[in-house]
Amino acid sequence: MNILTVQDLCKTYGAGDTKVEALKNVSFAVSKGEFVSVIGPSGSGKSTLLNMIGALDYPTSGKVIIDGRDIYTMKEEELSVFRRRNIGFVFQAYNLVPELNVEENIALPILLDYKKPDQQYIDELLGILGLAERKRHLPGQLSGGQQQRVAIGRALAAKPAIILADEPTGNLDSKNSRDVINLLKLSVERYRQTLIMITHNQSYASFADRVLSVEDGVVAELGGGAR
């Protein structure tokens, strides 16, 4: 079953001389539980693609269907709710809420949904992420690797349909990077999550089930990873 379907997605910035085609008729599908990595040089359109899938920006034309819903037909409010329930983000710069502690940051998507977090699940996540000791710490008191693990926890908290990660290891050293990738992979398998991850690092890309390459706004399938 396809959890994500992208159809003829186009994105154009500017007009006339400054016109840039960031994405050109991109189409592909991802099925549930798949780990897809996206590689490509800077400026190739990787991030634009991820933003489109996460409904952080609107395409010039084309469709993105997640879990059977065409996300661009939804209104702003509806989309926000959809996003917090169905899409989890992991950014390169962690982007945690500085005033909230680790536990609150992880539970944020659930809190935003006005629901009571399932404490057992949150504790389990904290355990897996190795943050149980630090659940009352603020992001400013954590190392980069720890912060990124909190961000992964946040992405997993609402048990979303799909997790989008934009260079999650970009700011980390190699040890922490490996930890983060392992954690991502572990959670994909454990919770049967779908993950789309942008990376610069070929070796991390090889952890994935499939690898997509983006070049000049065109997406091509590179086939399965090394596994």
């Binding site: 996460g54 926000s80 983000f89 998507p109």
Partner: peptide, 16 residues
């Protein structure tokens, strides 16, 4: 700006 953008990405609605 950036931080608010992230919150919206995580699922904060316009009203929130």
């Amino acid at each position: 700006m950036r931080y608010l953008g992230v919150l919206r990405a995580v699922g904060m609605s316009g009203k929130q």
